[in-house]
Measured scan of single mutants.
Amino acid sequence: MSIQHFRVALIPFFAAFCLPVFAHPETLVKVKDAEDQLGARVGYIELDLNSGKILESFRPEERFPMMSTFKVLLCGAVLSRVDAGQEQLGRRIHYSQNDLVEYSPVTEKHLTDGMTVRELCSAAITMSDNTAANLLLTTIGGPKELTAFLHNMGDHVTRLDRWEPELNEAIPNDERDTTMPAAMATTLRKLLTGELLTLASRQQLIDWMEADKVAGPLLRSALPAGWFIADKSGAGERGSRGIIAALGPDGKPSRIVVIYTTGSQATMDERNRQIAEIGASLIKHW
């Protein structure tokens, strides 16, 4: 067993022997301040990774656009098919120029040779490549099948209805392509620590998230040296922004954090800054 596999296998073990965790309302004060600064709703939840206990939450059962955070769930569904012998990570998928959609920095470079399922998941999570996500959605049967996968996990809230990039439209009061912070946090925890996926697939999923290259201005910008984070960000229309993450000190994750916002007129930089400040408060009061 590799060191990384050992780390993920012992996530519940280490967490069980940690000192009790206590909620700190100071972080919620910052979440509410972010709402004021952005002029928009902000949803927040913080779960203990081992027990699933909610440590703090704000608007945990209000719907927010998922945006690209759905790509972690998508690759979880792909990995479940791999575990069941219905898919192979090494299978190569070929596609054409007509398949390319807006923001496809990886797939646009491989029109000639195609990409493997493993490479597509890596591109979808680490670079948020939209064509990679659409190609992977095709392998599982489309958005409705991802929703069905989530329902089978016990998540009857999260739903995907459309493809990239239309799913980022974020129309107010439109339930399409949305989740709730509580539902997303619980589902992410199941994917990373539950028995739904094999140990190898859980490790692969967290490795992809740990290698995320496009979430630097968010929670990662607030992390002290030595902290662990595996995350996936999302951005959408109407001032929408979000991030889902597993993080913790001492090089291992111990909490799940989900943050979503929508309806702001603020710039992307300002949305990023507010999420980073929430992260800084979380870490300060850990």
Rank of each mutant, 00 (worst) to 15 (best):
L146T: 04
T112C: 13
H151P: 07
L160D: 02
V106E: 15
T198P: 06
V257W: 09
E108L: 13
T158L: 02
I256S: 12
I54E: 09
E270P: 04
V117W: 07
I278M: 14
D250K: 02
V106K: 15
W163P: 06
A276I: 03
P253A: 07
M184Y: 05
D129H: 00
R92P: 11
D250Q: 02
L136M: 09
W286E: 06
L38Y: 12
A222K: 14
D177R: 00
K284L: 09
T261R: 09
V72K: 01
L199Q: 12
R63N: 12
Q204L: 03
R63T: 14
R41S: 13
D129S: 01
L247Y: 14
E237L: 08
I125M: 04
V157N: 11
Q37G: 05
Y103V: 06
I54R: 10
E270D: 05
P25I: 12
E35F: 14
C75K: 00
G242L: 00
E277P: 07
T27H: 14
T131R: 06
Q86Y: 15
T116H: 09
L79E: 12
A230F: 11
N134K: 09
E26T: 13
G279S: 05
G242Y: 00
S233T: 10
L73G: 12
I125E: 01
L167V: 09
L89H: 10
A211V: 15
G239M: 11
G194N: 12
A276L: 14
L150D: 02
H151E: 05
L100E: 14
S68N: 00
E210S: 13
S80W: 15
D99G: 02
G239P: 01
V72H: 11
A185F: 00
E270V: 02
Q204R: 04
I140V: 10
R41Y: 06
C121S: 04
W286I: 04
A77Y: 14
T178E: 04
D99Q: 05
R63V: 10
L197M: 15
I244H: 01
T261E: 03
E119N: 08
L100W: 15
P105D: 11
A77G: 08
A235T: 13
Q37R: 08
A230Y: 12
E277F: 03
R59H: 15
A246T: 05
I283M: 05
W227S: 03
P249A: 10
Y95T: 13
L188G: 07
F58I: 07
V42T: 04
I259D: 00
L205Y: 04
P172C: 09
V31T: 07
P172T: 10
L135M: 12
R59P: 00
H94Q: 04
A225L: 04
P60Y: 05
G279D: 01
R238Y: 15
A230Q: 03
K144A: 03
D36R: 07
R271W: 14
G216F: 11
N168S: 12
S240V: 06
L89G: 03
G216H: 07
E46D: 15
T198V: 03
D207G: 06
F58A: 09
T27N: 12
E195P: 10
S201D: 12
G263H: 08
L218A: 05
H94E: 05
I278A: 14
S240C: 14
L197Q: 02
T138S: 07
F228C: 12
T138D: 05
R220V: 11
F70Q: 08
K32N: 13
E119G: 11
L223S: 05
V82C: 13
M115L: 03
L196W: 07
I278K: 00
A246D: 11
A200G: 07
N50W: 08
H156C: 05
R241T: 12
L150I: 08
G114W: 11
H94T: 04
L150G: 08
G90C: 05
W286L: 06
G52Q: 14
G43I: 00
L205M: 03
G251P: 11
E46Y: 15
V117E: 09
I243K: 00
F64C: 04
T131D: 02
G234N: 01
R271C: 11
K252Q: 05
T178V: 04
S122Q: 07
N272R: 14
S104M: 12
L74N: 02
A34R: 09
V82H: 09
T178D: 02
A40E: 11
L199A: 09
P224L: 07
E61A: 03
V29M: 13
V157L: 06
A230I: 03
F64W: 06
G142P: 05
A200C: 15
V257K: 00
V29F: 06
L28P: 05
V101K: 06
L196M: 10
T193R: 12
T193N: 12
G141E: 15
W208L: 13
S233H: 02
T261L: 09
T179M: 01
R162C: 12
E169G: 05
E277G: 08
E175M: 15
V29K: 15
G141H: 07
R273V: 05
R92K: 15
N168L: 13
V31D: 01
T186W: 03
D33E: 02
D174C: 15
D129C: 01
G141K: 14
A183H: 13
L100F: 02
D174W: 08
A225G: 08
K190A: 13
E56I: 05
G194P: 10
D99K: 02
H110W: 13
M209T: 09
L79R: 01
R159Y: 02
L197C: 07
I243S: 14
L218C: 04
I243H: 13
N134F: 08
P217L: 12
D83T: 03
T112A: 14
L49T: 05
M67G: 11
G239A: 10
I45Y: 11
R241D: 14
D155L: 01
Q86T: 14
T107C: 15
E62R: 02
P253Q: 12
T139Q: 09
G226V: 06
L137I: 06
F58C: 13
V214S: 04
S240K: 15
A246E: 05
R238N: 03
P181W: 00
I54Y: 12
A77R: 07
G43N: 00
A34Y: 12
H24L: 08
E166C: 14
T261S: 10
E277D: 02
E237R: 11
A215M: 15
L188S: 03
D161Q: 05
S122M: 03
R159N: 07
E87C: 10
I125L: 03
L223H: 09
Q204K: 02
K252T: 11
C121D: 00
N50D: 11
T69C: 13
H24W: 05
L223I: 13
K144I: 13
L150R: 01
Y260T: 07
A276M: 07
T186L: 11
L100H: 07
I256R: 00
Y103W: 04
L282C: 03
G263W: 10
S51E: 06
G194L: 13
D212H: 10
E26C: 08
G216M: 12
P224I: 06
L55Y: 11
T116C: 15
D177S: 04
T126E: 13
E237V: 10
L73P: 09
P165N: 09
P65F: 12
E270K: 01
Q86I: 12
I93W: 15
I244T: 15
I45D: 03
D161A: 05
A34E: 06
P181G: 03
A230C: 07
T147C: 02
I256E: 13
L73I: 03
L218W: 13
K144Y: 03
D231P: 12
A276F: 14
A215P: 12
G76Q: 01
V257L: 13
K30M: 15
C75Q: 01
D207N: 05
L282H: 04
